[in-house]
């Protein structure tokens, strides 16, 4: 399993995810992430308030079909345990004691689902809820070390995946291109002009820490991986002019 590698490969996948324009491409990205992390499975599972579900990932098709047929959504301890949480969770911390849960686990493992799992719950607007999970077959120590080393990137990509999925959701409330606040526009404009952070902060008469909040917020609204990416997107979307 993946320990640590240069961030380039991961950023390449994030950028591909960012550029994705069609739902089926998310499937491809999940496969790339599986290969990057060197794990058995990567799964994104959207469960809407209305009970509909959408998923993509590397689980066996037979298992996905089985999950739907058996209505495992009502039994799955990962879904039940994560819905009321915003913290990432290791599957072994969930409650698997009920007979139904144990049967579900047995069935899952018979379909190639590994014994270890880590899920990031993501809550979107209007009660939207999704889980981004990584699954693998290994002993506890190996698994724990993998999570320790990759937790931050897993949480990051979980949020990316969800934003992308929300973009493709036809019923989504029309708020797609978030407008930047005046201060965010100022900050991004000066950065686009090649100012350093210190120079921007100085020009706007704010501290670098305050500036950071504006940049981070703009970055989040733009769904960008880093500041450079955020500036590029702001320019591309016509949100700033230089």
């Amino acid at each position: 399993m993946k320990r640590r590698r240069a961030a380039t490969a991961f950023n390449t996948i994030l950028k591909a995810l960012e550029r994705t324009t069609e739902l089926p491409q998310l499937q491809l990205i999940s496969e790339q992430l599986r290969d990057y992390f060197e794990v058995d499975h990567i799964v994104y599972h959207w469960v809407s308030g209305s009970g509909t579900q959408y998923g993509c990932g590397t689980y066996d098709d037979a298992w996905v079909q089985r999950y739907v047929d058996q209505d495992y959504l009502r039994v799955d301890p990962v879904v039940l345990g994560c819905f009321q949480r915003f913290t990432a969770v290791d599957w072994k911390k969930l409650n698997w004691t009920s007979k139904a849960a144990r049967g579900f686990l047995e069935d899952a493992q018979a379909h190639g689902v590994g014994n270890q799992g880590f899920s990031v719950p993501v809550h979107g607007p209007n009660g939207q809820f999704a889980l981004f999970s990584v699954n693998h077959d290994s002993d506890d120590d190996t698994w724990f070390e993998f999570i320790e080393n990759n937790r931050r990137n897993l949480i990051l990509v979980a949020h990316y995946f969800n934003e992308k999925a929300l973009e493709f959701e036809p019923d989504r409330a029309p708020e797609a291109t978030a407008a930047l606040s005046p201060r965010e526009v100022d900050a991004m404009t000066f950065l686009a002009m090649g100012y350093s952070r210190a120079q921007v902060a100085d020009t706007l008469s704010i501290s670098e820490h305050t500036l950071r909040v504006y940049i981070e917020s703009a970055r989040h609204k733009l769904g960008a991986a880093n500041t450079t990416h955020a500036v590029a997107r702001a320019l591309q979307n016509g949100l700033i002019v230089i």
Binding site: F86, H123, I155, L156, H159, S181, P182, R183, E184, T210, V213, Y214, E216, S217, R219, H220, K221
Partner: peptide, 25 residues
């Protein structure tokens, strides 16, 4: 999490020039 409803975004954004904070980290 600031990606959801928060007190700062709903009641104190005037302390940040009307800015809201929404960041998964």
């Amino acid at each position: 999490p600031t990606t959801g409803r928060t007190m700062i975004n709903e009641h104190f954004s005037h302390l940040l020039d009307g800015q809201t904070v929404s960041d998964e980290h």
